[in-house]
Design a binder for these strands. Structure first.
Lengths: 188, 188
DNA sequence: ATAAACTATAAACATTTGTTAACGATATTT
DNA sequence: AAATATCGTTAACAAATGTTTATAGTTTAT
């Protein structure tokens, strides 16, 4: 729990009483490598906090092709946050790439936090803003950078990703085929 | 002002006193067609609310090529929100596509709202969440849909956009050349 | 320890997408 | 009203990217 509290305290002030009440609502979850954490077509009613390990988010299109949309690792939250917020069915699959330790934040805990912690709404705002900024950067990069440039800078976004995810998933994240990424690496 | 208050009241409860204080801090701005509202390389210290008109957001890459990243119209907020939040230089240019009437929300007004309106933090959270969801949808679509499919559904995201923006800007938004979009339209 | 699955690379070929230039139509400015 | 820019389409060609198949190294499961 320490780990999560530390992350929260970097964003807002929380009293010990608040921490106490909040953490009681959370549960631990251990998941083996390559296991599925969350499936599409159901409403996401929990947010995961990654204590240790790495999770990828993928989507399967109409042709049945998988696309890796996101990676998340230690000290980050992961969920289909759109599904969580809107209470609509998710489009994503969450899958571990290593044995992973998680804290599970059920909807009740998150909503309790927003409504009853003194700076709960502010925490919600800061988290949403944080992910907004990440997505904005990402959208910006898809317009202004080539796939090769994005490949060369990907470890700034996902530290050590080259040792934790196979290259074909990185290619998928970049929106290109693994064969093509292999080609791009050979050039310059 | 009515218009803005209505939009805010769809998201949170605000007292008349709050409205009174808040709206005093705003100013009106009228901008002719094709004028620049905001330039890159400076920190965005204001958020615009569009009363009437349409604004496009563009970025210029290292090769000097322009990319249309976003459109915003009536009853929406527009800014380089990343620059505003982080207080770092903007990458974007904001430009009108029609004669446009705006309300200007200076940083002081926004921060006053967050800190002094009863549900100010909640408003900030809801706005950030709203744009997060929009971006998530967009990122999802770039992976799972073809440019043609995205073209065919673009007016769901930007109503009436075909009558308000030239086609080459729509092509740019889709990440393809105007020539190629023209070709795609001819097929099926 | 062996077999099976997964991974990255490579080459040959197919398809998609970009580039350039030309044209007519429409809108804008003088 | 005339002149000038902007816009969308088309064609021919070039460049980028995808597809398929093969191969060898690596990891994983039996």
């Amino acid at each position: 729990m320490q780990q999560l509290i530390e992350v929260i305290r970097q964003m807002i002030c929380v009293s010990d009483a608040e921490v106490q009440h909040f953490t009681q609502m959370l549960t631990l979850k251990n998941v083996k490598k390559n296991e599925v954490l969350s499936l599409p077509d159901t409403i996401s009613n929990e947010i995961f906090f990654i204590k240790k390990g790495i999770v990828r988010v993928k989507i399967i299109d109409k042709e049945g092709t998988e696309h890796t949309i996101h990676f998340a690792m230690e000290n980050q939250f992961i969920a289909d946050y759109s599904s969580f917020i809107q209470k609509v069915p998710s489009f994503y699959t969450l899958q571990t790439l290593e044995d992973t330790e998680l804290l599970v934040l059920p909807r009740a805990a998150v909503e309790w936090g927003f409504q009853n912690m003194l700076e709960g709404q502010k925490l919600g705002r800061l988290i949403a803003e944080y992910y907004y900024i990440y997505q904005d950067q990402r959208i910006k990069n898809t317009y202004a950078l080539t796939p090769k440039q994005r490949y060369d800078s990907i470890s700034q976004v996902f530290p050590n990703i080259h040792n934790r995810a196979p290259q074909h998933m990185i290619a998928s994240y970049l929106g290109i085929t693994p064969v093509h990424l292999s080609r791009l690496k050979k050039q310059d």
